[in-house]
Amino acid sequence: MKTAFVTGSTGLLGNNLVRLLASRGVKVKALVRSPERAWKLLAGVPVELVKGDLADVESFASAMRGADVLFHTAAYFRDSYKGGSHEAGLMRINVEGTRALLEAAYGQGVRRVVHTSSIAVLAPRQGHRLTNETMGRDAEQEPDAYYRSKILADREVDTALERHPDLHASLVLPGFMNGPGDAGPTTAGQLVLDFLHGRLPGVINTRFSYVDARDVATALVVAAEKGQRGERYLAAGRDLHVGEALEVLSSVTGLPAPERQVPDALLGTLALMNEAWARLTGRPVLVSWQGFRTLRRERTNMAFDSSKAERTLGLRFRPLEETFTDAVQWFTANGYVDRARLPRLVGSV
């Protein structure tokens, strides 16, 4: 792999992937919507910026010519948790954008693709303690529009493989990603910031599979080198209750972790209030109504089996303490939180 084309290059996963590829001597073409933002986020990284948007793939298609691998990390995600309905945007970017991207890349001579999927496309099966790559959800029965869009995006990859026998594509399914470089921030990053600013009303009764974005970036690169055609690889990380994760954050920052449990009735009320706030301001909220419904439904569905990626890709997951330390260091260094708020912060980015 000498040249790579990366979508979503200013996202949490994308910018860590760009850094990893560049550190390995790969020439990176990075798709960005805002070059100004990208230059700030990727300062010092040797990268060629390509301005474009998945809503108009043809506008940047020619830039993919010559790429050995297309890494597709872009997705419509953060806006879908600002409240209200975002189904049209989810379908346009995550599904139609993926379809157009794959066809354009193939037309430009790209024959190897690594697609970033999500644990959202999987659901547990009765009698199985852990969920694995074979346990797909039914898009037609899925009420969460984001989940549905990711399932359908994966189908576009499968369809492209059927259409083009000489196309090689594999899929990596990340868990709840944290880490440095979360400029958005993502939902996971916003949870960390809400903790740092003391804005959490308490502990929500749910679980997540926490994973470092840098470990997922490594999985993507190794999947490009060793992944099998059409195969899916879970990079889910560590299954923890939110309360346990907040205790880890407390241990690296010195800030107290909330102890009060937020009952579903209160969380639902907050979600409805947040919906109204989101509609008025357009700002991200702690939890949307759809987010509340999904959290309540999925609270016991977050135990995933990443052994396939560990076995075949050599994937290893770093400690959550390291992930949170580096994420908080990055947030403080980039003005998201005042360092003086933190009684203790060990380690460095």
Rank of each mutant, 00 (worst) to 15 (best):
T218N: 08
S209T: 15
K308E: 04
R296K: 15
I93Q: 01
F304D: 08
L280H: 09
F304M: 11
Y81E: 10
R260S: 03
L152P: 02
R24E: 15
T187W: 01
E247M: 02
Y76V: 07
E298H: 09
A100T: 09
V57R: 00
E142C: 07
N94H: 11
L17M: 07
T187H: 02
P174I: 10
L200E: 04
E225M: 08
L249W: 01
T159Q: 11
R78D: 15
G227N: 12
E244Q: 14
M273C: 05
N94T: 09
G291D: 04
S288V: 07
V95A: 01
R293K: 14
T294F: 09
N274A: 11
H86T: 07
L161N: 10
G268E: 14
R92P: 00
A309S: 15
G202K: 02
S62M: 01
S80P: 01
S117F: 03
A333L: 15
N274E: 06
M302H: 06
R111C: 09
V157S: 09
W277K: 13
M1A: 10
A67L: 10
V114Y: 03
D79K: 15
A217F: 05
V114P: 06
A340S: 14
A145T: 07
D144N: 15
V18N: 02
E36S: 12
F324Y: 13
V248P: 01
R341K: 14
R238N: 02
A183P: 01
E259T: 13
V242L: 15
T323E: 06
V252Q: 08
G237P: 06
E96G: 00
L200Y: 09
A278K: 02
N274M: 11
Y106T: 03
V337W: 03
G107K: 12
A75P: 02
F208Y: 14
N94R: 04
L286Y: 15
R238Q: 11
G84K: 12
L171N: 03
R283L: 14
D305A: 09
G127L: 12
E36D: 13
W289V: 12
V18M: 10
V157F: 03
S117I: 04
E58Q: 13
A104P: 02
R297D: 10
A123Q: 14
R112S: 06
L234S: 01
T159C: 05
